[in-house]
Write a protein that binds this DNA or RNA. Structure first.
Lengths: 246, 246
DNA sequence: AATAGTTATTGTATATTTGACACAAACATG
DNA sequence: CATGTTTGTGTCAAATATACAATAACTATT
């Protein structure tokens, strides 16, 4: 792989992490220090992103960025589209930062947005040379560049696509209870669902298989564990999808 | 607007045109002549596309390309995403053509796909310096570059989004009959629909208004004309959308 | 002027899906 | 063993989806 950086094309990833409570997004701190005084000029947050290499496929670049941050190789990745407003890097802090990194601040950069889905349990080592943390979706304020727009687009797409059933499984561990799945849908869709009706529908999904195993160590009646069967999903394809869940 | 061409970023548009019979796509002929003999080296078809200007918004670039080809300014435009396979321009003919146009064939170009919708009646002057023609969707063979992939993505997106009601109106003239609308849905969705049930559902749409006018000059009972009301659509917003049509 | 050809318009009965709702069983804890 | 907590399950009414056919309105032809 050619390692030269392409000056005009970048990739930004909205990394959604679910912790059984809420949706979080992995954000990277961007802190500029004054070179002489060492004082903080500004400090804010960005999505995980970087320029692509000149001979690198866009999706490969996204996977590379995800791997560097989470150590996971095969994350679910969905492209959101290109963001190419000529003014997208023209914020004051953005210009200072690009200059600091050695880019030409006036260069046109279009970015391709992706989003990734994972369960927070999956990612242990989040630390690197820069501070990277989970932020609850509901508490995210203003981000660098046009990253709020990208986040918005990602959330919009997630809310639509999660109805196609298999997306939800990316946000859960391998084995999960129906209640955990329901809670996830409630968090993402932003509304509560009826337990009995939810189960009735879910059990129609051929790709959702009940295991011979129950939850352990919980102070209540343990639920059966379920898993997503990729084989059955591939088999039944689109019958097993779309608006199965509401 | 800065007129310098950006060497690394292009825009390609899938222009869908409906002619009350079938879906068509506007394609551009790409014919390379041997400079000395004048013989045709190859001749094939491409989507409507071009490089963006360095300070031009992506959507603006798409509109510019559409205007140059159709003379229409306000076409419905939807972004499909970025296509960035490093090998996307490496076909034999593609390399010859890029060289002929004066680009560096080895340059990395990512393209952003869009699709536009219009009724074939809307566009009169299709001629320019290069041959541009409507091709029935079902008869399109192999296109240049990765344009078959872009076309596929556009069609997929169109089939999903047309269920959100207002897309269909872009493919019809201002006034249309319910049968014309039904035929359009049948063509796009690729299946026949029950007339009575179709009408029952459609008439629930608040944004679809019946005019005091009937079809004229047809050799059968004339149908009422209908129109799409953008005002009512904006008013009722998402109640008026999604899976109203099946 | 009558007829043939074509498409528009409309309703009902049946099957299917959705939505609301409550209680006993199973585990951990103290 | 009593308490707290979550699981797992069925029915009925309402809404929605589907299948289906006969008459009306126009043009073209004779």
């Amino acid at each position: 792989m050619e390692q030269a950086i392409h000056p005009n094309i970048s990739v930004d990833c909205v990394i959604f992490g679910y912790d059984f409570e809420k949706l979080n997004v992995l954000l990277v701190e961007r802190t500029l220090l004054d070179e002489s005084s060492g004082k903080v000029v500004f400090s804010d947050l960005t999505l995980a992103g970087n320029h692509v290499f000149v001979n690198e496929d866009l999706k490969d670049a996204a996977h590379r960025i995800l791997f560097d941050l989470t150590g996971i190789k095969d994350l679910y990745l969905e492209q959101l589209g290109a963001f190419g407003d000529p003014e997208r890097l023209s914020g004051h802090n953005d210009q200072l930062w690009l200059n600091y990194l050695g880019y030409k601040p006036e260069d046109r950069v279009i970015t391709v947005g992706f989003y990734a889905l994972l369960n927070c349990e999956q990612v242990k080592i989040v630390l690197k040379d820069r501070t990277v943390k989970w932020y609850p979706l509901t508490e995210i304020g203003q981000l660098a560049y046009d990253h709020n727009r990208i986040l918005e687009a990602a959330l919009h797409d997630l809310r639509i696509k999660i109805r196609t059933a298999h997306l939800a499984f990316e946000l859960l561990p391998e084995k999960f209870t129906l209640s955990q799945l329901q809670k996830l849908m409630e968090v993402v869709l932003g509304k509560t669902l009826d337990k009995r009706n939810f189960r009735k529908r879910l059990l129609k999904l051929k790709s959702l298989v009940q295991l011979d195993e129950k939850q352990k160590g919980v102070a209540h009646k343990p639920g059966y564990l379920y898993a997503f069967s990729k084989e059955k999903y591939d088999l039944y394809d689109d019958q097993d999808t779309f608006s199965v869940i509401m």
